[in-house]
């Protein structure tokens, strides 16, 4: 008798009504633990390591845009103090040299930005400066791209387009070894 009843029970279907609850429970767990971390940042290609010091003396001074950031987080651009707000415009003017001035770059292809900092420079300031310099190039690429192809410059652009633009305005940024000032 008892056997028969248990076999009867086995014939019954499993109640799937609680499936939704189980799924909800898991869903809520993952909702809570999820952190959709958006990792964004400034992508940089470091130069390969070489033991020889790069010879910057060979370059013409008119083509070098030297930016120094000291341990007090102050900027010295081509020998003149400057605020970080003006850096982007100034760098753009230097690279393109629209007035064909004697003391600015011969052509965008020859322009070189030289960045040097102290070991005591704040990382925040360094990154802000780097951001402005990259911003200057990004804006120039965008302007050229608008003129040439009528579209905004972006990473989605065909590689061939991007290559021609970067050929005309290459971003050459050289970073010198920092000087040992103000490290804690």
């Amino acid at each position: 008798m008892a056997k028969k009843s248990s076999r009867d029970r086995m014939k019954n279907e499993i109640n799937a009504g609680s499936m939704a609850d189980i799924a909800f429970l898991l869903l809520i767990f993952f909702l809570v633990t999820t952190t959709i971390v958006e990792d964004k940042g400034i992508l940089v290609k470091l130069p390969p390591w070489s033991d020889e010091e790069p010879d910057i003396a060979k370059l013409k001074t008119r083509n070098v845009y030297s930016v120094l950031v000291n341990a007090q987080n102050q900027l010295l651009v081509r020998g003149e103090p400057m605020d970080i707000e003006n850096l982007r415009e100034n760098a753009k003017e230097f690279i393109m040299n629209p007035g064909q001035l004697e003391n600015m770059s011969e052509s965008p292809k020859k322009a070189i930005i030289s960045l040097k900092n102290d070991r005591g420079t704040n990382y925040k300031t360094y990154l802000a400066v780097y951001n402005e310099l990259k911003g200057a190039y990004d804006e120039l690429w965008d302007e050229l791209c608008q003129r040439r192809y009528g579209v905004a410059y972006s990473e989605e652009l065909p590689v061939a387009y991007r290559r021609t633009i970067k050929e005309d305005i290459p971003m050459i940024l050289s970073e010198a070894e920092p000087t040992n000032f103000g490290e804690e």
Partner: peptide, 23 residues
């Protein structure tokens, strides 16, 4: 300060890891 960042960057360059993203 940039001191330690510079050391890390130099080490990355020496190890051939050149693609770097400043978060």
């Amino acid at each position: 300060t940039m001191g330690i960042v510079q050391d890390v960057k130099t080490q990355l360059r020496k190890s051939g890891q050149l693609r770097v993203n400043y978060s």
